[in-house]
Amino acid sequence: MGHTVGMAGGVAALCVLPFLAGNAYLEHLLALWMLYALLALSLNIVIGYLGELTFGHAAFVGVGAYTSALLSTQLGLPPLLGLPLAAVAAALFGLVIGYAALRVVGPQFTILTLGFGSILYTITNNWVDLTRGPMGISDIPPMAIGPMTFTSARETYFLILALVLAVGFLCHALVNSRTGRAFLAVRENAPLAASLGINVFHTKLLGFVVATAIAGLGGAIYAHYIKVITPDIMGVQNVAALIIVVIIGGRGTIVGPILGALVYIGLLEALRVAGPLRMVIFAALLTGTVVFLPGGLVSLWQRWRTTHKADNNLPAGNGVPSAEGGAE
């Protein structure tokens, strides 16, 4: 099937990419790309599959980062153990916060998550004895699996790439499972889904907890890679960046967030040549893309397919984005 061949080709390309980069800085950018892709995939579960906008996602990234960082610097726990514990800690927070916040929908849900996120930020910023407050935690040891340490950008890239592929596959499997179809049913029409016997609240809570667990994982990897974290990791600007990545790429798809992360990192990097105009051009392109391409970058592919199919009068294929419940 063309689909599988395409997937394999894409994964192979991602694997050789760092060897083509040529310098360590480009490898660092690639690692950042994968990190954003991982976090965007987790946010996409809430935005794309549950159809709710969360403003608290960065707080869970922060919980994961702080959990693993504190465990390794204070208790000397190996980062490999810190990683799953970070995911568990973030998921626990996700469970409690989701349990409260998912009772409301729409803008109210958004503000509730913003509120919970801000409270987590404030606690992190003020609980100096535990988190060292605004001073942050420094000298976090690098990630290590047995004798293998992930200190360089290239090593970190492969570590996160593996996670991105795993999460991507998980999302794909999820969407095509009973639970995943329940997600989409809830997103499209919650009352109808409820009448079909789907427990809307539990379905949403499950999605939210999975998303926060992955966010925590991403936060832990970030902490061990950058080696310094401050409460700013939980800030609203990080949430805005992730929302941009998901929607620009195409919410509700798997390729979308990964593509969105590439464009986000790549564009901001390329626009450095613009000097002081950098962020202005970035914002203008962002607004323009949203106005002219509301379904995100993946919708470009869908449009091309639609016109292509119409021209050749072919039967509808099993395209990647549509199989995962594209944005419309």
């Binding site: 390329a270 450095r272 040549v273 392109l285 893309t289 970058l297």
Partner: peptide, 9 residues
């Protein structure tokens, strides 16, 4: 979106 990416790298 794409053009400056190649120009800058």
């Amino acid at each position: 979106l794409a053009i400056p990416m190649f120009g800058g790298l």
